[in-house]
């Protein structure tokens, strides 16, 4: 299968303008005969929305603004980031997976960073579920940015037998050293290598670029194979249209060597978690 990661910079608060950009990227992906195109977190709205959230929110199951995206998905699977208004007035930072003219899944971001320069918890409602779902390319799990840094989230996707772990991200670059790039990019790559290897799954991480209110988004999107090997690494801070042919057969090959998935024991993990939580006095 051929996959495309769109490392771009959405316009902050301008849904229609961003939709147009999405159509252009999808057209290009179709020309390259890609099977799946992945956009970054909040790709249709931009990230630093604050009180703009309610103005760009939509319900993808009811709202017809995304119909053209949906019909595009007859030709190519599409993952986009939106502000989802679930129940009226409840705004989620969500990722939507479209395939064959249908919504296959919506993931609502669970871990909303609210510290330092982040204030997502102030504006977004919290998602409450990690799940995997079948797609034409195997079992897929979606995560959004900070979700991926909590390894329990990725564990849930392993327990759900994910073949492809897709992360939509709007990760700011921060921390300087003598090396090129931001030091913060290293933690994403560390996680990418570890999670792909120990889940024997592909990890596809699409991070945005551009500036919002003085913050620079770091780019550096990547794809790791089921052995934990980096297959593709996008440039720092520059926009890029990244496409790659994935050999889905590699899942089988990796799992013949490494039996992490076969040997996993989610029921024991669940039991242990319940025991730990029962004892937790706070």
């Amino acid at each position: 299968m051929k996959v495309v990661l769109v490392q771009f910079s959405p316009h902050l608060g301008l849904l229609d303008k961003n939709l147009d950009l999405h159509y252009q990227f999808i057209d290009r992906a179709l020309e390259e005969k890609a099977d799946l195109i992945i956009f970054p977190e909040l790709s249709l709205t931009g990230y630093t929305l604050k009180d703009l959230i309610s103005e760009v929110a939509l319900n993808p199951r009811k709202n017809n603004q995304l119909n053209r995206l949906k019909s595009y998905s007859h030709k190519i699977d599409i993952v986009v980031g939106i502000v989802e208004e679930g129940n009226p007035g409840l705004f989620y930072n969500s990722a939507v997976y479209y395939s064959k003219g249908e919504i296959l899944a919506i993931h609502r971001k669970v871990f909303l960073p609210t510290f330092g320069l982040f204030e997502e918890g102030k504006f977004f409602a919290t998602g409450r579920n990690f799940k995997t779902f079948p797609t034409p390319f195997g079992q897929v799990g979606l995560l959004i940015c900070r979700d991926f840094l909590h390894y329990g989230a990725s564990y849930c996707l392993l327990a759900g037998k994910a073949d492809l772990i897709i992360i939509l991200s709007a990760a700011p670059g921060r921390g300087m050293s003598e090396n090129s790039g931001f030091t913060s990019s290293e933690m994403w790559e560390l996680m990418g290598a570890a999670i792909s290897r120990f889940s024997t799954a592909f990890v596809l991480y699409c991070n945005r670029v551009g500036f919002e209110d003085g913050v620079v988004f770091a780019g550096g999107s990547f794809i790791y194979d089921p052995w934990g090997k980096c297959l593709l690494r996008g440039p720092d801070i520059e926009p890029a249209f990244l496409s790659l042919e994935l050999e889905l057969e590699d899942l089988r090959r990796a799992r013949k060597t490494w039996s992490f998935l076969r040997d996993d024991k989610p029921e024991i993990i669940l039991n242990s978690l319940q025991n730990l939580l029962a004892k937790n006095e706070d």
């Binding site: 050293s177 003598e178 090129s180 500036f211 801070i237």
Partner: peptide, 20 residues
């Protein structure tokens, strides 16, 4: 405290251009 001046310059010049 050490920086990579080439990378820092690329970030700053891009910032000036895009923000303007």
């Amino acid at each position: 405290m050490k920086i990579n001046p080439e990378f820092v310059t690329s970030v700053i010049t891009k910032f000036i251009r895009e923000e303007l």
